[in-house]
Design a protein around this nucleic acid. Sequence first.
DNA 1: ACCCAACCTCAACATTTGACATAGCGCTAT
DNA 2: ATAGCGCTATGTCAAATGTTGAGGTTGGGT
Lengths: 261, 261
Amino acid sequence: MLCEAKLAGGAVVSVNEANWVPCALCPLPACPGLRPLGAAEVAYMQQFKQGELRIDRGAQALVQGQRSAHVFTVLAGVLIRYKLLEDGRRQIVNFMFPGDLVGLQAALGEPMSHSVEALTPATLCVFSRERFPELIHHQSQLAYDVIWLAAKEEEALEEHLVALGQRTARERIAYLAVFLMSRAIETGISEPGASLALSVTQTQIADMLGLSLVHTNRTLQALRQANLIGWTLGEITIADLDAARDFARYDAPAVGARPYL
Amino acid sequence: MLCEAKLAGGAVVSVNEANWVPCALCPLPACPGLRPLGAAEVAYMQQFKQGELRIDRGAQALVQGQRSAHVFTVLAGVLIRYKLLEDGRRQIVNFMFPGDLVGLQAALGEPMSHSVEALTPATLCVFSRERFPELIHHQSQLAYDVIWLAAKEEEALEEHLVALGQRTARERIAYLAVFLMSRAIETGISEPGASLALSVTQTQIADMLGLSLVHTNRTLQALRQANLIGWTLGEITIADLDAARDFARYDAPAVGARPYL
DNA sequence: ACCCAACCTCAACATTTGACATAGCGCTAT
DNA sequence: ATAGCGCTATGTCAAATGTTGAGGTTGGGT
C-alpha cells in the first residue's frame, strides 16, 4: 500500500509501510541524551505512527498560521522553527533535534504560531493530529512525556530569551554555538571534542540572535580570531567547550535524559 | 488545623482549611478568557489542593536552581518569572496571570530554571509536587490541560523572543503594554477600554525587554508624547489598543479560552 | 520633622549595532 | 565559458542604544 498526502511547501508524507522504521527498531534510544520508552509505549507508538516524512534542507514541515493534520517527531536531522512578521522580519525561535516533538500546537487543534523548516535532510515520524488527544487520554506515561518535552522546550526558549535580552553579540554567538553543540552531542549528531557538521548560514544566525547580517559576520570573525568559536557554513568548531561556555556565561541545564515519543 | 511551612524568601504556605477558597467556588471561571473545568475535575482538584499561599509584592514563590516541594496556580494577582546570571544581569521571562501554572519544572522534579516573584499581592493555590504525576496519570483531562497551558506558555515566550530579536525599543515597549493589557483583560484584571492598574517599574520593563534603564525611560517618554502608550508606575493606559498593536506589529494570538487547574 | 530608600528624570558622552553599497567566491545550470 | 545564485567578506556612515553621574520626587519609617 502506498498513499501520499500533499503537505504545505510541497513536502510529501509517504505512508509506505515498507519503508518505515518500526518503533521497536527506532534508533533514538541509542542517543546518549534520550531515555528509551517502555515496551508498552513502544507498542502503542508503533500502531500510532502513520508514516514517515522525508524533507530536504530548506523544505517546510509546518507553516505558520495553518492548522496541520499531522504532528511530528524528529527521527533524524535538524530543523528550525521561526516566526515571520508581515514586513518580512524573521525570528528563529529554536532548533529541533532528534526526539523533539514538532507541532504541539497543531496537536491541540490550534493554528501554528511558527513555521518549521529543515536545516538538513530530515526524517520525521508522522502522527495524526486528530488522534493525538487519544494518546494523551489513554497513555498516561506518554502524556507525562509530552509535558516533560514541553517543559524542556520552554526552558530552552527561556535561555534564548536571556541571550537576546542580556548578552552582547559575541556572547550570543558563543552561546548559540555551545547550545547547538550540546544538543548535537545529546542526540548523537556529534561527539564530545569533535566539531559539528551542520550548515547554518550567517543569515540564520543573525535571524536567531537578533543581529544584523553584517554584524553577525564581523562578530564571527572576532570569535574566530580569539580562537573561541570556529563557525563556517558547514561546520561549528569549539576548541575549548568550557572556555566558550564560560565566555558566553551559559550554564547548560543539567542533562537529565529527555524522553521522546 | 493549621500548619505552616517556610518557603524561600520568607513566604509562608498557610495550610489552613478554613481559609481556602473551595474549588467549587473558584472565582476563575468568571474570567472571560478562562474555560471552566468539568465537575469531575473540580472535585479532583478540591482534594488535590493543599492550601493557599499569599505573598506580598516583591516576595518570591520559587527560587532559581532549587527544587520545590510545591507547584502553584495563580488564584489572584500578577507575578513575574525571571532568570539571573551570575554577574547580576536579570532577564524577566514572562508575566503570570490568574489561571497560570507556576512551577511546571518543579512538578517534574527538576530544579527551577527561573525564580518567580509577585508583582502585586498574590494568592496562589498550592499543590504537592510529589503527587503531581498522580494527577497526570489519573486525570487525563487535566493532563491535557497542562499540555495546553505549556503550549500556550511556549507561544508567549516565542512572541517575547520576536520582540527582543526583531523589534525596536519603541515597538518592544508598545508590544509589552499590549501584551499585558490583553492578558489582564482575559483574566478579569482589567476591562476593554479601561487602563490597567499594575505597578511595573521601569527597571522591570528594561529587564524584560533587554533595554537599559535610561533608554527605557527615554522610550517611554517618546511613546507618551506620541499618545500611544501612557505607562506610569501604577498604571498602563493605551488610548487606542488597535493603533498600539499595529505600531508594535503584534497580532495577538487568537484567544481560545485557556484552561486552568 | 527628618532621613532613607526606591523610583523617575535629564544631560553628556561612549559604544554598539544597523543600513547600505560593493566585491569576491564557489556552486549549478545552460 | 557564462550567467545566475547564495553565501561570505569589507568599508563607510548614521542611528540606536548603553554608560555614567547628578538631581528630583515620593512615601514610609523613626
